[in-house]
Computed example of a mutant assay.
Amino acid sequence: MSLLDVKNIEKIYTTRFGGQKVRALKDVSFTVDRGEYISIMGESGSGKTTLLNILAALDKPTKGEVLLEGKSIVSIKEKDIAEFRRNNLGFVFQDFNLLDTFSAEDNIYLPLVLARTDHKEMEKRLEPIARKLGISDILKKYPYEISGGQKQRVAIARALITGPKLILADEPTGALDSKASDQLLNLFSQLNKEGQTILMVTHSVQAASKAGRVLFIKDGQVFHQIYRGDMSGDQMYQKISTALTALSTGGGSRE
Rank of each mutant, 00 (worst) to 15 (best):
I81G: 04
G47R: 08
K77Q: 10
I135F: 02
I138H: 02
S178G: 00
V154M: 01
N87M: 05
S46I: 11
T249P: 06
K141E: 08
A130T: 11
A175E: 13
L114S: 03
G18F: 12
L3S: 06
I138T: 04
N186W: 00
V214T: 14
Y237W: 08
A56W: 04
L247Y: 01
M231I: 02
A82P: 01
A180H: 08
R16M: 12
Q20M: 15
H224K: 14
G250D: 08
A169S: 12
K120R: 14
A159M: 02
L112E: 03
N8A: 09
P172Q: 12
K26E: 15
R158F: 07
L51F: 09
G45V: 08
V154Q: 05
K63F: 13
N186T: 00
H203D: 03
T49F: 11
G64D: 09
E65C: 01
E10I: 11
K124P: 04
D177Q: 03
V32F: 12
L51Q: 08
I54V: 10
D80T: 03
K140D: 09
T249K: 14
F17K: 15
A157E: 12
F91P: 10
I161Y: 02
E171D: 04
D106M: 01
E127P: 01
M1F: 00
S46F: 10
S29H: 10
F93D: 11
Q238S: 14
G220P: 11
I129V: 14
G229Y: 03
S103N: 04
T117C: 14
L67Y: 09
K151H: 10
A243V: 12
S44F: 10
I38A: 00
G149N: 06
E171P: 03
L89I: 09
A169Y: 08
Q183T: 12
K218H: 11
Q183A: 14
P172S: 06
Q206C: 00
Q235R: 04
P164Q: 09
D59P: 05
G47P: 11
G229M: 01
